[in-house]
């Protein structure tokens, strides 16, 4: 079995805007070892989120290959990717993306229920307890604060014990105090579950806690630390 949680080879992605082609990622290669915490760093518009969406299988590259936890996901269809995402990947977004019609508890349990996990409810309650939101389990997203929403989103990302978590600016919508708490929580839970974490941010403070950093500049990886192979 490969020691790498993620291998990306020569990924390119461009968009057409008003018949102009804009290259967002240009032949990016990346390898992330199992259990590591890797930060993709870059300024706004550098292509961080696009890279994260390609690596996590939410989007398709124009060229290149992606192996995620031993599976080549490059050519998988949307419906083949869905169950794979459910079992293997956890997501944490800047805008939380909680399902508005579901309570905090239901939002957390949802991926486990999709996976037909009979322990879904038990796990969701444990996670709620772990993030100190048991009292808010029956609240809907609009009844929660930003920090609470993100804690729920982290629980949701972790409920299926994914092998890898992708986090896109998880503290971007939070004040610094809440941002600090969320990062602390995310890192603790990753540690507990021995999960790989790939996080996109422009915060140097968060980057400083990472095992490795890949810095994106104009769609290319400019520099990287030792654990990330270019």
């Amino acid at each position: 079995m490969s020691p790498n949680a993620l291998e990306a080879i020569q990924l390119s992605k461009s968009y057409n805007v008003d018949s102009r082609q804009i290259t967002v990622l240009d032949r990016v290669s990346l390898t992330v070892p199992i259990g590591s915490f890797v930060v993709i760093e870059g300024k706004s518009g550098s292509g961080k989120s696009t890279l994260l969406s390609l690596l996590s299988g939410l989007d398709k590259p124009d060229s290149g290959k992606i192996r995620l936890c031993g599976t080549d996901i490059t050519d998988l269809s949307e419906d083949e990717l869905a169950p794979f995402r459910n079992r293997t990947i956890g997501y944490v977004f800047q805008s939380f993306h909680l399902v508005p019609s579901l309570t905090a508890f239901e939002n957390i349990a949802f991926p486990a229920e999709l996976n037909r996990d009979p322990q879904a409810a038990v796990k969701a309650k444990e996670l709620l307890h772990r993030v100190d939101l048991s009292k808010r389990m029956n609240n809907f997203p609009h009844q929660l604060s930003g920090g609470e929403k993100q804690r729920i989103a982290i629980c949701r990302a972790l409920i299926n014990s994914p092998q890898i978590i992708f986090a896109d600016e998880p503290t971007g919508n939070l004040d610094s105090a809440n941002g600090e708490i969320i990062m602390q929580l995310l890192l603790e839970l990753r540690q507990e579950l021995m999960t790989t974490l790939v996080l996109a941010t422009h915060s140097r403070e968060i980057s400083s806690k990472a095992d490795a950093i890949a810095r994106l500049v104009d769609g290319r990886i400019a520099t990287s630390s030792e654990k990330v192979n270019l």
Partner: peptide, 19 residues
């Protein structure tokens, strides 16, 4: 928009189109 959001979230969290 709400329906699209729901559909997208379901898919991101691992639900197939059939779901």
């Amino acid at each position: 928009m709400t329906r699209i959001r729901e559909a997208v979230y379901f898919k991101i969290l691992g639900a197939q189109s059939s779901f």
